[in-house]
Design a protein around this nucleic acid. Structure first.
Length: 418
DNA sequence: AGTCCACTGGAAAGTGGGGGAG
DNA sequence: CTCCCCCACTTTCCAGTGGACT
């Protein structure tokens, strides 16, 4: 036998645990689906159809429900000669403005006709909108436009103003656009300009987080398919459901947890997935998320993190922003990198706080020292240094910080499994 | 009750880079 | 080449903020 022996297989078919898996039925969302169907019904009846907005945190079934409804809608539409329906789906995950969404829509519409894609930069916004109307008009009939994770566009909501009014403004005349907006962020709706809000959120459907029982019911059929018989001990699915329910109520989280637990089990070449595997999987996933968050920071972000790590290594935490900024300047100096303003560093710090990398404490000492924030790492110093060490430009500095921390005996702080 | 410290964080304007059109 | 577009990241400016102090 060579170095690569085949592991004992716990998975029968891992696909039901994949993020992209589409179950044939949507569980635990009966009420929402019914509302959804009522909202889409006018399309089949050839009546004017309202735009629809779905709200709810990630992993609450919005996307799955939409895929499900659309495929049923398309199937039904085929049965009626006078219903001319098309659908376009754009995920706005990496799109940060209306402009980019419009470009993505144009390209999605062109893809179906083998036309050339347009560039993501260079045109004026109006030019892209014109192209979009052109494509839509060429399609005709009712076009359901799904904008998934639309909250990513932030305040730049021009497209949400333009699209629903395209017809009444005379930009298109043969097509009836119906917009389905999907948002992970509740605040997104409130921050929309009032004129957009009226037209867009005509029909709203809320997707609340799942509780542990619902998650269990979602997991069970998938677990059944994904794993060989007898591989899962009884507590595994309920535990995954419980962890996810406690944290976010996200089905995606629960499913990932179950998959990770299976993968850990398989890697260990053991026969059954146990409660312990689930706990390990939970740690592993959390760790990966932090790791990834750190790696994706910009150079400036890394420099700020590096400065904070230095303070941590010197046991000078929590640090107030003034002192941290000074250290940050010396870090930039060492790296021969440009430094940014204090204001900008505060933004980087608040980003890292969002990611869960650092903790912030607000202090107020009135007349004597005023009001300020204090920062410290929220994750083990060693983890930060590992990431910095694997980031170009930071190798040398992270070594220096590491030895500083060693001198202060700050690296073996009990959390050695990171 | 009012002062004041030392920031905090919102807003707006600037910068440079990627790209189209003529 | 020139002029225009958009965007990520940044700087500049500054009106709050809120607890300790008088």
């Amino acid at each position: 036998m060579g170095m690569f022996e085949r592991d004992r297989q716990v998975f029968a078919d891992a696909e039901p645990l994949d993020d992209s898996y589409e179950p044939e039925d949507v569980r635990e969302r009966d009420e929402e689906l019914e509302k959804y169907q009522r909202a889409l019904q006018p399309i089949i009846d050839n009546r004017p159809t309202s735009n629809i907005f779905l709200y709810g945190k990630t992993g609450t079934g919005k996307t799955v429900a939409t895929k499900y409804m659309l495929s049923h809608l398309e199937n039904s539409a085929v049965g009626y000669d006078d219903v001319d329906l098309s659908t376009v789906w754009v995920s706005c995950e990496n799109l940060s403005s209306s402009y980019q969404v419009a470009v993505a829509l144009v390209n999605e519409l062109r893809k179906n006709q083998n036309k050339d894609r347009i560039s993501t930069t260079g045109y004026s916004q109006q030019r892209v909108f014109d192209l979009l109307y052109e494509e839509l008009d060429a399609l005709g009939g009712t076009v359901v436009i799904v904008l998934d994770e639309i909250d990513n566009i932030g305040h730049s909501d021009d497209i949400l103003y333009g699209l629903p009014r395209a017809r009444s403004n005379g930009y298109v005349d043969t097509v009836r656009p119906v917009i389905v907006g999907i948002s992970n962020d509740f605040k997104f709706r409130d921050n929309l300009s009032p004129k957009v809000k009226d037209t867009l959120a005509e029909k709203e459907i809320l997707f609340p987080p799942y509780d542990a029982n619902q998650l269990r019911s979602i997991l069970e059929p998938r677990a059944e398919k994904a794993f060989h018989d007898g591989v899962l001990t009884d507590d595994v699915v309920p535990l995954c459901a419980a962890f996810a329910a406690q944290d976010t109520g996200s089905a995606r989280q629960a499913i990932r947890l179950l998959r990770e637990a299976g993968e850990l089990t398989q890697a260990k070449d053991s026969e059954t997935v146990t409660e312990e595997n689930v706990r390990d999987a939970q740690d592993e996933l959390e760790k990966n998320q932090l790791y990834q968050g750190m790696q994706e920071l910009t150079t400036q972000g890394h420099a700020v993190l590096c400065a904070l790590a230095y303070h941590q290594a010197l046991d000078e935490v929590p640090v107030r922003s003034r002192d941290l900024y000074e250290r940050y300047l010396t870090v930039c100096d060492r790296l021969d990198a440009d430094s940014v303003s204090e204001r900008r560093v505060r933004d980087h710090l608040s980003d890292m706080h969002m990611l869960g990398l650092i903790s912030v404490n607000e202090r107020n000492e009135g007349l004597s020292a005023g009001r300020y924030h204090e920062y410290e790492l929220d994750i083990p110093l060693k983890t930060v240094l590992d990431v910095l060490n694997s980031t170009s430009r930071f190798e040398e500095l992270s070594d220096i910080i590491k030895s500083t921390a060693d001198d202060n005996n700050l690296l073996q702080s009990g959390i050695s499994d990171y």
